[in-house]
Structure formats: structure tokens, C-alpha cells
Design a protein around this nucleic acid. Structure first.
Lengths: 222, 222
DNA sequence: CCGCGTGCTCAGGAGCCGCTCAGCCCCGGC
DNA sequence: GCCGGGGCTGAGCGGCTCCTGAGCACGCGG
């Protein structure tokens, strides 16, 4: 579980970091709102601990900007400002929790766990074409409900086919989809892998379109 | 927005009800844990305000039973018991927030709004995949009910796996989840720790997906 | 002080995967 | 029926990925 701690006081930041690490979190630290925005945008954190009093843009504004940037990572605000209007402003400004200093480390950890456990991971949809199913998240393939083991390239190839079922895909398009970088299409790499794919999912599934490429059959042949 | 208030003191319940109504919530009131369970199971509330001191089963137990019954409505616990262990127990027992009496009505409303707008709702506090169980709060792991001792990094790794059971996780994703800062992925740190993890929970549990990463098996292999 | 557990790096080795090459076959055209 | 070209097949090799084992730095407790 990955945590971003936003805190300008070095001593406090160090304390937080050690405490959260001992609670099992991996932690990064940002010293100001701008850094926090940048880091939250570039790395997937499970939660963010956000101090309110920061140099430059403050915690409230940092939180607002994150939400404006479509960063929905749970935010716990941490501050000595105990005024009611601050707490309400923080929560209504997009924070998910609000904890006053001084605080207990264990309560902070417990609140973070409560925040994190409510976010199920978004899963891409399972592709289905004919009797074939492909789950991009688990990288697994089933045929008629039976699991099929596919080596990496075969799977990448099948994935490319299943994204455009019924379309004729040229060797070049397949190269682009399943191989890194621009490849010399002098070789017959694609042919080879189409062949291996056919060995595993049945040669009927992929038909050859002479002079143009290959096509994945949408329905099981009669 | 529909609210369930669980509070046995009639005066307090009335106060809460009027206050929340003026903040724009539609409110029902339950006087004890049993009633609360029944009502939460039969009506779709947006959030539940749960007093801890209740006749019969107390707030902690009520919350636990709701989660056991697959009721994932956000729960805010409300109590005069200010002890740290109470707060931690409440949060790790499945509550989403914990507010002390005396409290400000506007803060309660703000916290409820924060709970409700965080859409995907809570999940079990203890993770379970196959024969493995992991409690993020206590940092403990069981296999077939038997406690397993895991060093910090192994545990962080397993935690990452168990949050996305069955998914293929690349070395980079695992690095991001369990290690601080930006790491050079030139090294084989992840491999080593996967290996240690396998030594402890059985090599069958984690399978390698060549060229892609590792995957935690969802069910015990036949 | 030493022993131990943890976290990390490095080197070596094995197995598989991906790629290439060469030859054959099939299809289409004349 | 012949010929040409595109597609298929088989074999083989190089390299990459992953596993193993050893070794070292560091922190902690005895």
C-alpha cells in the first residue's frame, strides 16, 4: 500500500514516514502542494495524507486542484487548525477525512485503512468473441469455458484480433499491435505466431485472407 | 439522501433527526442494534450514523454483523468513548468514520457528505483469497487458519497480490505497491521477495507469467 | 561483541520463447 | 497443365527471462 505524505516541516514528515512505514505502508513525501500535485498525478497512490498549512498553495487548494485534475485518490487532511469552518471546508472541498493535530499514529493508520479498503480496483471488461473469452486483467483465455494456456506473443496477437473481431488485419497492423517498435516486415514472424495460435485455439478460428492478412471469425463455423 | 440514525436515547435521537433533516437528509431512526440490522438490510440507506452505547448488541458488533451480512452502507460511528483503542477498533471493525461526542452538527453533516460521495463502498476489513487471510490492521497472515510469520516486505508484497487476486501484476506494479520512491527496476528485488514469499506460503500460490509478472492463484490448485 | 533476521545485489545456469531460414504446398492465373 | 507467388511447415539457434545460491550491509537484541 502506497502513501503520499504532504508535509513541509521536515521533522514532522520524518516522524510520519517512520510511523506509517512501521504500519506497513510504502511512503513518499512531498514538501509543498505543487510537488504533491505532480507526484499524485504521476504515481498511483492508495491514499494521500495532506497537511493544510503549506508554503505556496495550501492543502485545501491542493485538494481542490487534484479533484479538478481527475485524481480521485482518497485524501486525509491533517492540521492543527481546529476551527469548525476549516473542518467543514476541508471535507466539502474534496477531502475524505479530516484529522486534528495532535493525533495518535494508530488512529491515523486506522483511518487510512478505512479509506483504502473501500476502493475496489477497476477492471477492464472481458472480451468475448464466438467461443473465445479473454480477460485483459488476468491475461487468461478460455474457449468454451475451458482455460487455454497461451505464450505471451500468442496472447498479444489474440488480443489484437479480439479487439476487432471480423476485421481483416494486415500483417503490418498485427505487428504494430503486438510487437514493440517498428519491425521489418520482411520476416514471417506473424505467420509463425498465427500458426501457433491456430494450434491452440483451432485453425478454424482464424481464417487467411490471401494477399491482405488474417481475420478472426466472429461465430463458430457451422 | 437517506440516513439511518441508530441511537437509543430518545432526546439525542430527536436532536440528530432534526439537525440532519435541516441539512437535507431524509432520516429513519432505530433504537437498538437489532432494529438497525433489520432496517439496514431491508432499506437502501446512503449512510448510517451509529451510536456505540446501545442496549443489547453494541455499535461495534452491529457494524461487524452488517458487514458480515454483506451490507456495505457507509457507517459513521458516534460516541462519547474517546479512548484510542475504541476509535481504532471501530474503524478496523468496518466503520468508515468515527466522530466523538460532543460534536458539531455541521461537521457531522460534512463527514456524511464526504462518505456518501465516495462512491464504491466498503469492502471487508480482512482480505481473503483462497486459503490465505490477511488483516491489514494487525499485519497478520493466516493460511488454512494457521498463522504465518512474514517479514515486512513479503507482507507488503502479499498484500499487493491479495488486493487484486488473479490479476497479473508486473514487477513494476509490485515495486510501486510495496517499495518507497522510484526504484530502478534493473535489479531483481521483486523476484527475490516473491521467492521468499513462495517459501513461506507455498510455491503453488504464486505463479509466474513469463514476460509479464506474477499472479496470485484465486483458488487452491487441484 | 557476536549472532540473527532482513533487504538487497551479483553471478551463473537452465529452459523456454521468439525469430530466422529454407523448403514445400496450395491457390490463382494463363 | 504449367508457372509464379504467397502462405504453411519444420528445424534450429540465440537470447532473454526466470530461478538458484552465495554474499554483503544494516539494524536489533542478546
Amino acid at each position: 500500500m502506497r502513501l503520499l505524505i504532504v508535509e513541509d516541516k521536515v521533522k514532522m514528515a520524518g516522524l510520519l514516514r517512520r510511523a506509517m512505514r512501521s504500519e506497513g505502508f510504502a511512503t513518499d513525501v512531498a514538501g509543498c502542494g505543487e510537488d504533491a500535485l505532480w507526484m499524485a498525478g504521476s504515481t498511483r497512490y492508495d491514499a494521500i495524507v495532506l497537511d493544510v498549512m503549506l508554503p505556496g498553495i495550501d492543502g485545501f487548494e491542493t485538494c481542490r486542484r487534484m479533484r479538478a485534475d481527475e485524481i480521485w485518490t482518497p485524501v486525509l487532511m491533517l492540521t492543527a487548525r481546529s476551527a469548525l469552518e476549516d473542518r467543514v471546508a476541508g471535507l466539502d472541498g474534496g477531502a475524505d477525512d479530516y484529522l486534528l493535530k495532535p493525533f495518535e499514529v494508530q488512529e491515523l493508520a486506522a483511518r487510512l485503512r478505512a479509506l483504502i479498503r473501500r476502493r475496489p480496483h477497476a477492471r477492464p471488461a472481458v472480451l468475448q468473441v464466438g467461443d473465445l473469452q479473454l480477460d485483459p486483467a488476468t491475461q487468461r483465455v478460455w474457449q468454451d469455458g475451458v482455460a487455454v494456456a497461451l505464450p505471451g506473443k500468442c496472447l498479444a496477437l489474440l488480443h489484437a484480433f479480439m479487439r476487432r473481431p471480423g476485421d481483416v488485419l494486415s500483417r503490418f497492423e498485427l505487428l504494430e499491435a503486438a510487437w514493440d517498435g517498428a519491425y521489418e516486415n520482411r520476416s514471417n514472424v506473424v505467420d509463425q505466431h498465427v500458426r501457433m495460435l491456430r494450434e491452440r485455439i483451432g485453425s478454424d478460428s482464424i481464417e487467411t485472407v490471401r494477399g491482405r492478412g488474417y481475420r478472426l471469425r466472429e461465430s463458430v463455423p457451422c
